[in-house]
Amino acid sequence: MSSEKKKLRSAKLFIYTSLILVGLASLFPFYWMFVMATNPNNLINRNPPVMTPGTEMFSNFQKVLDSIPFFQAMLNSLIVTTSITFGVLILCSLAGFAFAKLHFPGRTILFVFILGTMMIPPQLGLIPTYFIITELGWLSDLRAVIVPGLMNAFGIFWMRQYISSSVPDELIEAARIDGCSNFRIYWNIIVPVILPAFATLGIIVFMAIWGDYLWPLVVLQDQSTHTIQVALRSLMDDRVRDYGMILSGTFWATVPLIVVFLLFNRLFIKSITDGAVKS
């Protein structure tokens, strides 16, 4: 019995030690990013490098502001991300409602088609899409990112699944008898029921669009239209790299997301796992 207990205790110790080490490895780059963002270059380039936060927080960030339109880029990212997120929520829930509850010829095949489009890698149409955007005169225009971003096959799939399992047909029948139009049914019955699905899909879409890089890099060429991801990269352009400045920009671009994440972390983690697991 006591040897069993001992074994259990050493197992516990082993698991805790590994988890703590992993946790530290996971958090260390954040800490180190803060250290770099607050230190002057002579300390950063010292060997061994500095390991404690310094006093240059503001001057490093000032250099970021001199180098890129940081707040403009954050605003651009925010505009793009919120427009796409809200647009996707509305378009996908409408389409999801149609696929889940309305009967029309070709419903199944049209839905399968949408699922099929999820298999296509986005790079396949990259070059022609770039020329379409050029033709539309949308180069260096946020619409170049927003409009194609509204097309979201996963969102339709997700909403369809959610609506068919959470809204009973009887509810819709009853509303019909009382003369509700289909849009009324969507707005007054479906939307209140699927608010949790909005939260989940909203978080997934927001994260994906916020971090998107290749497409904004291709179409948002003018510096004033850069999203924050594109702007951050241009911090790396100088021949002699100022690491304090580079990581200061990266740090302050990351902090807002981390704050939001920490506030809503349960919803966040649940959304990400649900989105992954249920598909």
């Binding site: 946790g23 780059p29 954040f30 994260m207 951050l232 990351t254 983690i269």
Partner: peptide, 11 residues
């Protein structure tokens, strides 16, 4: 702690 890196953008 282990999930936090995912919140950081790839860039």
């Amino acid at each position: 702690a282990v999930f936090l890196p995912y919140v950081t953008s790839i860039v």
